[in-house]
Structure formats: structure tokens, C-alpha cells
């Protein structure tokens, strides 16, 4: 069994208690219009090009087995991610995004510095993409990390059994509740939120400490109606640690070209996120803007 990971970041400070290592799982069942991690969308490894420092030397094209290059001279239109163009590039801006690991390989890598993070009150956070999409790999991995504080950052989109199974391995959960209206949720993320809301109830009943995150997207989630409805849903949640509001990042589209995608829609940065905090505070929920 292998899992596909597109990044392992050090010193994560916003994703669970203490200071943490953060593993980004590749592949996501949602396709949120505002997603700022497009390299997490596709489950398979793919070619990543940091376009900004391209010197236009043409070396990549000269070794590419495909004849169909896009207009921007970045990759073949039918790029298979063969990687032949990587080690010819003088600017070093090409790599395969997404590395396959066996659970024990990834565990070894995480264990190397787990003591450092434990001393800083932290552990490991599994993020993505959507880690639940690789649930069996994730569970096999967590078994190999005994005594390490484990957190998951998830959209909550999975079958209930899968969700409950992974939940049992976690010490802390960070879960998005992007939008209460199912119609809007479908239209901007591509999937219904019914599974998510059901899994939120499971999470709430589990008694695991958790944080709920809401991306603030103008006209979608950043509305008084949506935030009020979310606050009503969360009110009284006994193990809810924080409600965290994530302001829309105007630069969210920056990475799309680097994995050969188009960024569809831009959103209004909208109103002052600080005002939204008050909505949650009215429901006696601890809330902050990240």
C-alpha cells in the first residue's frame, strides 16, 4: 500500500496544538472555486512548474516526448508527468508534485524529528487535499506513530464509517464547514454538504477536541445568513475549541498555472472579517480570524 503526499511542511503553527509537522495528502473530492492549493486536487503525481523564474531556454521542450506544447511553453498539453524535463532545467523550477510513500517510509520520516515537536507541545497534522480520500493509508500510518499527537485537517467529506474509523486514530480534528446551504455548497465545491454535516455530528458526539473552520467567501459563505446558520449549528458544542474564519486570499489563483490548471473565479475580498467574529461570539463560541 502507498499513499501520495504532495508536501511535508515543518513548523506548522496554526493547525492544532503546539508546533507541528504537517503532511499534505494529494487528491481531493471537492473542487472549491476558491481553493488555493490546486496541487492537492488531483490524486496522482503531476508535473509542477514554478513559472515565475522560467528563463525560457527551451530545454524542457527539447526533451519532451510529446509534441503538443501549450502556448505558454510550460508543459505539454498532454503532459503525463514523465519528468524528463526536470533535470535539464537550469532554473530548477520543475518537479513532480506528489510522492508515493509506503506507510513505514512516511512514518520514518515523521519520526525523525517527532521528539522536537513533542517538546513544543505538538505533533503531526494530516492535511491535503483531503486525507480522508486515502483513509486506509492514513490509518496504517497512524498506527506507526504511537505516542505522537495526531490531528487531521479535513473537509469532512467521506462516508460515515471512513470518517469514524479515522476519527478514532486522531487526537484533534480541524474540520471545515464551508457553507450551510446545500445548493451553494454543491455549486461552489462540486459536492453536497450532507455527508459533511452528518460527520460533524459524529465529531461532536465523539468528544474529541476540534476546531471548525469557515473560509470567508463573499456571496457564498461570508454572509450574515450563512455565518448565523453555522453558529446555530455549532452552538453548545462541548468540545469545540475554536471557530476559525479564513479570509479569502486574493492570490488564491497564483498556483494554478504551476500545475497546468486554470483558476476559474475570483471572489470579492468583501467585508471586514472581524465583524463576523461577533456573530459567533453571540452564540458563546470562541472565534478568531486566521
Amino acid at each position: 500500500m502507498t499513499g501520495t503526499v504532495f508536501d511535508i511542511k515543518e513548523f506548522a503553527i496554526y493547525d492544532g496544538p503546539g508546533v507541528r509537522q504537517k503532511v499534505f495528502f494529494k487528491g481531493c473530492p471537492l473542487h472549491c472555486s476558491w481553493c488555493h492549493n490546486p496541487e492537492g486536487l488531483c490524486p496522482a503525481p503531476e508535473l509542477w512548474v514554478s513559472t515565475a523564474s522560467c528563463m525560457n531556454c527551451g530545454g524542457c521542450q527539447s526533451v519532451c516526448p510529446s509534441g503538443k506544447w501549450d502556448d505558454a511553453h510550460i508543459r505539454a498539453a498532454d503532459c503525463t508527468g514523465c519528468g524528463k524535463c526536470i533535470d535539464i532545467c537550469p532554473a530548477g523550477i520543475r518537479r513532480i508534485c506528489g510522492q508515493r510513500y509506503r506507510p513505514e517510509e512516511l512514518a520514518d520520516r515523521l519520526l525523525k524529528r517527532s521528539g522536537y515537536y513533542a517538546e513544543l507541545g505538538g505533533g503531526v497534522t494530516f492535511s491535503g487535499g483531503e486525507p480522508l480520500l486515502q483513509a486506509s493509508f492514513l490509518m496504517a500510518l497512524t498506527v506507526l506513530l504511537p505516542g505522537i499527537h495526531k490531528a487531521i485537517e479535513t473537509s469532512g467529506y467521506a462516508g460515515s464509517d471512513t470518517f469514524a474509523g479515522v476519527l478514532a486514530h486522531m487526537d484533534y480534528v480541524i474540520m471545515d464547514i464551508k457553507c450551510i446551504s446545500d445548493a451553494l455548497h454543491r455549486s461552489y465545491t462540486g459536492v453536497s454538504n450532507r455527508r459533511i454535516l452528518r460527520n460533524y455530528r459524529l465529531l461532536r458526539e465523539s468528544g474529541k477536541p476540534h476546531t471548525v473552520r469557515i473560509p470567508l467567501i463573499g456571496g457564498v459563505s461570508h454572509t450574515v445568513e450563512n455565518l448565523t446558520a453555522t453558529a446555530e449549528l455549532l452552538a453548545g458544542d462541548p468540545t469545540l475549541d475554536w471557530v476559525e474564519l479564513l479570509p479569502y486570499q486574493p492570490a488564491a489563483g497564483a498556483k494554478y498555472r504551476q500545475v497546468g490548471r486554470e483558476y476559474g473565479q475570483t471572489f470579492d475580498v468583501g467585508k471586514n472579517p472581524a465583524e463576523s467574529v461577533e456573530i459567533f461570539e453571540k452564540y458563546r463560541l470562541r472565534c478568531r480570524v486566521l
Binding site: F11, I13, Y14, V19, Y116, E119, L120, R288, L290
Partner: peptide, 18 residues
């Protein structure tokens, strides 16, 4: 982005301490 809120500052301070 390592300094967004007081909690983040406390955590970044631990990097120095380490």
C-alpha cells in the same frame, strides 16, 4: 505569516528557544 496572532508569536518564539 509566522506572526499572525499572539499564539503564533508564542510558537515562533519556541523556534528561537530550541
Amino acid at each position: 505569516s509566522m506572526f499572525r496572532n499572539p499564539e503564533a508569536i508564542s510558537k515562533t518564539a519556541l523556534l528561537v528557544k530550541s
